[in-house]
Design a protein around this nucleic acid. Sequence first.
DNA 1: CAATATCTACCTACATACAGGTAGGTATCA
DNA 2: TGATACCTACCTGTATGTAGGTAGATATTG
Lengths: 207, 207
Amino acid sequence: MFTYLQVGTFASSKPNFTMNTAQNTKDRIIELGRDYMQRIGYHSFNYKQIALELNIKNASIHHYFPSKEDLGLAVIEKDRQDFIYLTQKVKKAKAMDKLEALIASYEYYYKEGKKLCVISTFSTSYNEITERMQLAASQYAELVTAWLAATLKEGLESGEFSFKEPVEELANVWMAMMPGALLVGRTGGKAAFDKTISSLRQTVKSS
Amino acid sequence: MFTYLQVGTFASSKPNFTMNTAQNTKDRIIELGRDYMQRIGYHSFNYKQIALELNIKNASIHHYFPSKEDLGLAVIEKDRQDFIYLTQKVKKAKAMDKLEALIASYEYYYKEGKKLCVISTFSTSYNEITERMQLAASQYAELVTAWLAATLKEGLESGEFSFKEPVEELANVWMAMMPGALLVGRTGGKAAFDKTISSLRQTVKSS
DNA sequence: CAATATCTACCTACATACAGGTAGGTATCA
DNA sequence: TGATACCTACCTGTATGTAGGTAGATATTG
């Protein structure tokens, strides 16, 4: 005769551009799931780690997410929502500040245990996830690419940026280099990560 | 009363810049292991797949590689040797042709089932592999970075290239963008991959 | 040269661990 | 009372890895 407590305070020190909606168990599972997936990948992540951390049983996770795929999809969707939230927040900022907001989240990923971003997490597992997850990941990637292209265009037209490539091409470069920087940072350490991010910033400035 | 045959002809159509030394079972295990790892990652890859393909039993793989780590290390070492072989082969070529030789292998990876390169394969699994493997992957990455830097410097001094960044920085960009292109290509398809590679080529030409 | 020992390359069978997932029960609360 | 949020207990599949054996090749020795 005892009550099932909502345990764990989940005191995270996330940058304020990510929504913090983890009050209930379901949201906490998503947050923790995302965290583990970014660290060790979708397949290596398992329910036990989350169950232990939330002081609940393995089976209870299945109550919220019948299959692992459901959790994977929820993680992608949550991250997509967070991205949209971020873009809304910087909507009226200068183009470079928008890009800096995105860079900041990548720097946060690196600091917090050399995590990958969610898109690259699922990209690395792309050949072994279900079609629905592939689609979700691809659509999310497309969304970010489109936002990058729009932001680059905006900065170019306002005279803030001075690059010569087509915006779509440079958007692709950013899409490749940001996760690439995280990968390089894993083998090459912080210096390699920083150098890559620094070069990334230059891409909008070189005339 | 029968003999254990060396089965499977292993007819691979690899580009000629990779060494083809897979005559015996041990080498075939390494080749197949590398292939699977690049496709689905180190952890998702398992012995059964190789055993089936080589018509041997699971336990026989342990005869050559007592632990999975041994095989992982062998794969990294094999790929490093192949890289060295490649650099030797293009030793007297122009700087751009050297870079093109590297790009060609990445295009080959993409075509052959959206594979990742070996370095990024182990980078993605970096937080869940042994220290020895982390070290091997890091050292291999350092070797490639150094070669890139040397090649970029060479092309710059000969007037073939005309970039402004420090060579080490641009080498880092290449280290990030090549695997990044493969990741982007998984979610965004061939067009995204090609665009990224095309932008990569531009990095040495833009003045 | 023949008997013998040892090595290589596999085998069968099993141990162990752990993953995702299910069935059905119990406590709490609106 | 019915939905919600958990639980215990269990099933199934699969992964790495081990123990011990066997056929055939090769080296050793009387």
